[in-house]
Design a protein around this nucleic acid. Structure first.
Lengths: 348, 348
DNA sequence: GCGCTTTACTGAAACGCTTTAAAAGATCAT
DNA sequence: ATGATCTTTTAAAGCGTTTCAGTAAAGCGC
């Protein structure tokens, strides 16, 4: 048994009575001695209708006394649309960079009065996920790279989603796109290594399947950076485990590489350790570049060169979403996010 | 400008027509030539009513042709309850451990036919967050430590939530509790260091405010481990930045510590680097213990001793939730999660 | 006192779905 | 043929909210 979950008997265990049903606006109306319409007008501050101050107060008091909370489903059913924005919950542990971006985005969207919700599509394949999302009738859906196809976008739009925005490496028909230039990350790393005189360049590609969508374009970016030169690119599959790294390092002499771009800083650290343990000197024998600019990289010895990538401000993406929701007929926008810059430290 | 967002004009920009409204079950009924009730029976496989095979097929075909997706809000409005489980979205970047736990939990809950959704309560204070959650009328809410008070629990229950489960370090009145024994983490670390003959023990406490809820009990755990002995405990505030660590390391001689428990592996690495740069030898001068057992720790030299904590299997928590939803009257359960174990490596 | 506007409110319909109760067809015993 | 029983389908109510259209009551100019 991998863990222990012990139940502690609670001191006072008053099987909560609570058969009392949840208060509705009708209950508030009854208590305040007004109609449901009036309650709605007061609680929503409807500007088109004037309600006298005494009535207003009575309604507020009644609502407070009953602990009234409006029913979002009923509201959006009546309204015909929701202010729900659906985001994918990252299923792979994602770095502080992305985490900060998500927070910012959520904050900005809630400023604009949207309800942001993260939705995990564990075990659902493409279309199923889109259907599950569609049931919630969101105003907008932000889709991660690879999470959905054109049919999925169609399902969502047909179900009333006013904006579908994909974050990823390629456009999807019918959706707004925010293209994160992962290829640019690889390109910057490749160009840097080439400029430092390296010619036999290895590229670490994680074996973890969820990361393929990031690693593939980064690899392609390195390739494109050295295309037409005398440099070569070697693909190095690597699992995020010590043993895998040790195996790779053991093959180092036969690989004959003088540089590696390691997908990101974590894989870079894993590999650097294994190389050092195997007697390979960084950067003398082999230069090493990571990506994502984690604090981690500054702590390594030699300190790790890395590619810093600037994500868009959450506020700007929030505005794109809002614009799209307000004007759903407009043609899909495609934005490119770039600014991958190399941070040169001691490892290259 | 910290980033660039360039709009690329789309090749074919066919301002999507799509004034077509979203299909409802009535549309399906019309197309299939049956009543709305029949559609509902067919699509929900209602066992109490038998529908003939030809009718069944016609309905399915009509639904498919229209691309019908049911309206979750309407459904749960009618049903009077939802199968929605609300979880907090971690606002601080959280490690792979917790991330795996979340995934497992989501998977288990969706097996039980719940819809799991992560909700960020950015900028909402206590009660407001509870109200926002209550609007969604979830069947259950999982609340992070410190995210809600007893009044919040009351709001949620009054709005029909059948289960509120808190994950954290302390019980909250009226809610089921899953107590993660952070104090145990500190206790194990403290006991280990004491057993290794260390007597002047420092405890790193992150200055990042969001981490206080974890760090406080871990600190207390160390204290309780050495209570009544000749060992002393010194609190060491540390921000997750190189400079902060360097400042702390510079004070090392005057602090006169022979051991440190560093809150977690990341802070441990930060501190280890700073100590080594300042000429303090680990573990000879000062022993160092982290927590969370990240891969990272195995890669450091000396390799990092750490406290491994086993989170509950998501499946078990899912079952607790399901049990609570099925039987909302039952007295709140309190579970203790423990099994903090020390992984002894070279740094202590 | 009569029209007219303004103010302050209310009644009722509608949103999309499920489910109860009942109605129509079909099958069968008498 | 006449109910009786079973099978298949339907009409209608209701979940909690918002909002359109309407209605008394009051204010105003004459």
């Amino acid at each position: 048994m991998p863990y222990v979950m012990v139940q502690i008997p609670n001191s006072a265990a008053p099987a909560t009575p609570q058969p009392r049903s949840v208060p509705t606006s009708a209950d508030v109306a009854r208590l305040a001695g007004v109609s449901r319409a009036t309650v709605s007008y007061v609680l929503n501050n409807t500007s088109a209708v004037r309600i006298s101050e005494p009535t207003r107060r009575r309604v507020h008091e009644a609502a407070k006394e009953l602990g009234y909370v409006p029913h979002a489903a009923a509201r959006s059913l009546r309204a015909g649309h929701s202010r729900l924005v659906l985001m994918p919950a990252p299923s792979v542990p994602i770095g502080p960079l992305y985490s900060r971006f998500i927070n910012e985005l959520q904050w900005a969207l809630s400023r604009l009065d949207y309800t942001v919700v993260q939705y995990a599509s564990v075990g659902l394949r493409g279309d199923e996920a889109a259907r599950a999302w569609a049931e919630l009738r969101p105003a907008a859906v932000l889709v991660p790279v690879g999470g959905i196809g054109p049919e999925g976008v169609a399902v969502l739009k047909r179900s009333g989603a006013r904006a579908v925005v994909t974050l990823g490496t390629e456009r999807i028909e019918g959706a707004h796109s925010l293209l994160v230039d992962h290829a640019g990350v690889g390109r910057v790393a490749g160009a840097h290594l080439y400029a430092r005189g390296r010619r036999r360049i290895g590229v670490v590609v994680p074996e973890e399947p969820g990361l393929k969508v990031f690693s593939k374009p980064r690899l392609d970016g390195v390739r494109s950076a050295v295309e037409g030169t005398d440099a070569s690119v070697t693909v190095l599959p690597l699992a995020y485990e010590e043993e895998s790294a040790a195996r790779l390092a053991a093959r180092w002499p036969e690989l004959g590489l003088d540089a590696v771009f390691a997908f990101n800083d974590e894989y870079a650290m894993l590999l650097m350790r294994a190389l050092q343990d195997a007697g390979v000197s960084v950067p003398d024998d082999t230069a090493l570049v990571g990506a994502d600019d984690l604090v981690l990289g500054r702590l390594l010895r030699p300190s790790l060169s890395t590619v810093h990538i600037e994500l868009p401000a959450g506020r700007d993406l929030a505005e794109l979403v809002d614009r799209a929701v307000r004007n759903p007929g407009a043609a899909p926008e495609t934005h490119h996010v770039h600014e991958a810059t190399l941070v040169h430290r001691d490892s290259s």
